[in-house]
Design a protein around this nucleic acid. Structure first.
Lengths: 188, 188
DNA sequence: GGGCTTAGTGACTGCTCAGTTAGTACCGGA
DNA sequence: TCCGGTACTAACTGAGCAGTCACTAAGCCC
């Protein structure tokens, strides 16, 4: 809020803005969030936001990208840690499932992801999301060494966890996230 | 467009507006859609929309409800048709999975669903969505007679189909929706 | 310390949009 | 045929918001 409390490099400032944008976009999505709210939270002026990102949509895209990136990093950490002990794809997937559970305990990250999917009516955003999702899929495949059927099931559970965690509460059974990869990789 | 081409009962008009709203909300979600666009598509004046629904959010909720209702009807039809031939939960889930594939070929329905989940940052909407989702779950359980593990897996695949169908295209493997219930109900 | 670069802002513009007001057209019944 | 209610609209308001412009100020190198 206070003017020029600290003077950062443009890159650092961009990061700070994206962090703020994650919180704000999580609430309202692309259309439902004002750049002013993001700027206020980031502690910069609203015009400067446009200097840093050009358009609101570009900022949204940068924010979504960071969301996927954080997820990939979390998976890498969990994957590598488990791999040191075991090469069993099941064990690795299970560990990454647990890591994902921790990740989406952060409601903002979860909501932003849901907003990203919903925003896929826009072709430009769809392309980004497809891209990032594909990259994440390949990363999980590489880290775990699991076969395609297992991966598919694992991602499917992840998607359900997203929704159930979000709508959550009583009425929907509390679905253990830890069981994500536990539910059998084999088909029948 | 033409004024008062046909004079409908308020109930009929509400239905017509919800149909139009499905298309418009699918594109932009709650915040990203103007009531004017919906009114124009429905062929009524924008103020009349407010007389019929009170607020934009109420209209959104009505639209989401109809989306879930359509899904339930589709499931009922598929479930009953299969049940006439077989009581095997697997066969019934498979038939309903195919029916769901047909349903989300309608991009608007799919997008609206995604927007509904994303809009769950709003407690009022979250409650509606949780409610409708729970009702759908119980309906599928009742119709199929499947055990909880199978149902969970079936819904998980459905959620993944939502996302993959939406972001679709090259890069993500084209995932057969027909296989939704085919992927084994048993754990391991 | 002078001149160039880069971070950052205040004030504004033009537009969009949710919601309101005050009414008009139409219909079914007595 | 007048009447009361219901469907429906034109015109408007007030607020919010994306994006712009003209500007200030803080390093940085010579």
């Amino acid at each position: 809020m206070n003017a020029t409390a600290t003077r950062l490099s443009a890159e650092e400032r961009r990061d700070a803005v994206v962090v703020a944008a994650t919180i704000e976009f999580a609430q309202g999505g692309l259309a439902g969030t004002s750049t002013e709210a993001i700027a206020r939270r980031a502690g910069v002026s609203q015009p400067y936001l446009f200097q840093l990102f050009g358009t609101k949509k570009e900022l949204f895209i940068a924010t979504v990208r960071r969301c996927f990136e954080r997820t990939a990093l979390q998976f890498q950490a969990a994957g590598r840690a488990t791999r040191a002990r075991s090469d069993d794809p099941r064990a690795i997937l299970e560990a990454m499932g647990a890591a994902y559970g921790d990740l989406i305990a952060d409601r903002d990250l979860l909501l932003l992801q849901l907003h990203a999917y919903a925003a896929c009516a826009d072709p430009e955003i769809r392309e980004i999301v497809r891209d990032e999702y594909g990259r994440l899929y390949r990363e999980v495949a590489r880290l775990s060494g699991a076969d395609e059927a297992s991966l598919e099931q694992w991602f499917a559970y992840g998607m359900m966890c997203n929704v159930v965690t979000m709508i959550g509460g009583p009425g929907t059974q509390p679905l253990s996230l830890r069981a994500m990869a536990g539910g059998g990789a084999a088909r029948s």
